[in-house]
Structures are given as structure tokens and as C-alpha cells.
Amino acid sequence: MKIEDKTIEYVAALAKLELSEEEGLTHERARGDLERILAYIETMNELDTEGIEPMSHVFPLKNVMREDVVREDMIRQTEQMEGRQIRREALLSNAPSQKEGCFVVPKTVE
């Protein structure tokens, strides 16, 4: 299928990606790749699926529910630590920017 420029822009916006104009996966290359890959994907239309139900999971799966409680036995990663404060630190330790126990992001509301 023919992919329009605006389609590529729309899809890139959905994926929160900027396509480069010069190098790597450029806008033009992305469009060409997508066209060729989708053309191949469309071969699946040859298969008659009339009356077939879409199948998400091959085995019957049920939603797994549990009480929303802190499970000390499952917080093994912090077994040597005491208290919630330190656990929070452990979870924040990978953040590129953190302050006072929170993730730091640019101002989003004026």
C-alpha cells in the first residue's frame, strides 16, 4: 500500500519518535520500509478467515486478582533495607533526575 507523508508523520507522533532528515532511519527510508513490509504483511489477506474469532491467547487465561496489600515476602530486593523510605530510594535510583523522593520532569502546566 502507498504510505503518504502525513501517515508517516502521524505514526511517528503516535510512537513519540522524531525521524531524522539526514541519517539513520530517515523519514524517506521509514516510508519505503513500511510500504514494503506492509505489502508483504498484506499477503495474509489471501487466507480466508471468514467465521474465525480473533485469538489473543492460545491457552485459556483468566484475570489474576489479589488484594492490594504490601507483600513483604515479595519485596526481596530490599530485604536488607528497612522502611518504605529506603525502598522508594531504591526505585528512584535509576531515574535520570530525582528530587525529594519524586521523578523530575519539565514543567507541564503553566
Binding site: 505514526v11 510512537a15 519518535l17 521509514a30 513500511l34 513490509i37
Partner: peptide, 12 residues
Amino acid sequence: KRRMLIGAFVLS
């Protein structure tokens, strides 16, 4: 990136 674009497309 390519696969995320395909994914975003087929889900749009």
C-alpha cells in the same frame, strides 16, 4: 524504531 512504527500503524 521500525517495529514501533509498524506497531503504531497496525494499531491506529
